[in-house]
Design a protein around this nucleic acid. Structure first.
Lengths: 239, 239
DNA sequence: ATACTTAACGTATTTCTTACGCTAAGTTTT
DNA sequence: AAAACTTAGCGTAAGAAATACGTTAAGTAT
């Protein structure tokens, strides 16, 4: 019979952001501040994550990671998968970095992955380790983080079919229908019919116009809308 | 800064079964073979689970638990949530039992929950610890296992709206439309219109009749159907 | 004034969902 | 043997939702 051990338990966050053009993922440069040679080494980027502390709920750990990096609280965060293969740390440089960082002898880490959606402009810009990269075109990341992003993206694609609410976390408070459609198209990876998209928006009942239009654009200015949480609850509960 | 530790990592399986009448969950009597007083103690029932072994993938651990209890392999198993609250072991008898069972000093266990669907008649009947109880009407279970079953059921409800394929794991190879409908109604917790249900089945394209009917029933005998995996793939990929 | 660009409304068609009426094929009862 | 009972199984019509596509509107740039 096999022996039992305690793997270390961590959380990793796939933090999606939208800058109006493309879908981004927040990454940490783990060699930030090091020599130029190190910086040019591959796989220097990783997802933000942390070991789970003593007496800390795993969800709380994910909330903490997000707070530390972005300063944001009360953000949508969803647990979506556990990555627990024993050979997740098969790259030597990953294991070395992890042990130096945590000051612990580590054999194995089981990680619980979360995804989150935030507005890019709200992130703390003082943390130089943070970079935003295009979610659809990532370089090779540390550990199994490319796989984690991929599974997170697939989960998000499934989720927004039923709960579009999550997407509003990615947009400014006031947004145009076109911005919302672009976001849908980016995440789903396909084009949508603008006229039918508009119809579905007006039918939704919880995306309401605000008294403001675009300015200084070289075409007909678009109406701004906002997401009405109270109307959302009404629509979902009482009809 | 808080200390870091290694919680123990376990898997727990919510194994759903269908006996033609009601939806069941497989539970383990952890006091099996003990004195009568112990047997009458509350919370003697728990979900099947295990610590994750050294060099074992977490998914593999879940597969192993299922195999040990039912003898079944190649069964649908889906990871659905991690339960990682630090006070999961707050009941003294739970902690005592766990430490006696594992011969380890345990402070905390983070568990990864899976659900699975199987045909009840195929379970190994030799294991006396195993009991099947009605999923909708469970007694108080050990640990946070009532909550785990509840979340598992909610996940299953969501899943079958999009991927009815999972349900065929619960039915015999040949089944009637009525059996399938009963299963849907049990899981969704609501009645469905039989005529419309039949229509959706014939439209599906992957539930095909076999050359056999019910016998010795006190009414018009029903046609048997089976799930065609090859047709399922065609329908889902090429249309 | 004309061209250009994106916003925004409308309509017709098809496809999906829902509600409900009726007949069919067995066994059980009288 | 006929009638009653039970569940199987087909059909149709109305309403809702998804799809495809034509057209006008309101600004800036030249």
């Amino acid at each position: 019979m096999s022996l039992r051990l305690n793997p270390h338990v961590s959380v990793d966050c796939v933090i999606f952001g939208f800058d109006g053009q493309s879908l981004k993922v927040l990454l940490i440069d783990r060699n930030y501040g090091m020599s130029a040679e190190s910086l040019s080494a591959p796989q220097t980027l990783k997802l933000p994550g942390s070991m789970v502390y003593d007496d800390e709920d795993v969800d709380t750990a994910a909330i903490r990671v997000l707070k530390e990096l972005t300063g944001l609280e009360n953000i949508f965060l969803k647990q979506f998968h556990v990555f627990g293969s024993p050979d997740r740390l098969k790259k030597v440089e990953d294991l070395n970095w992890l042990q130096a960082e945590t000051h612990m002898k580590i054999k194995r880490v089981v990680t619980i992955a979360y995804y989150s959606l935030i507005k890019i402009h709200k992130t703390t810009p003082t943390d130089g380790r943070v970079v935003w990269l295009d979610a659809m075109n990532l370089p090779e990341l540390a550990f199994d983080h490319n796989q984690i992003v991929q599974v997170g993206l697939q989960t998000l694609q499934k989720e927004i079919q039923h709960e579009p609410i999550e997407l509003f976390e990615l947009l400014p408070r006031k947004f145009t229908i076109r911005q919302l459609q672009t976001l849908y198209e980016l995440i789903l990876g396909k084009k949508l019919d603008n006229r039918n998209f508009r119809k579905s928006i007006s039918k939704s009942g919880y995306i309401v116009p605000v008294n403001e239009k675009e300015k200084n654009v070289a075409h007909k200015p678009a109406q701004y809308y906002r997401f009405s949480h109270s109307r959302y609850l009404k629509v979902k509960n009482y009809s």
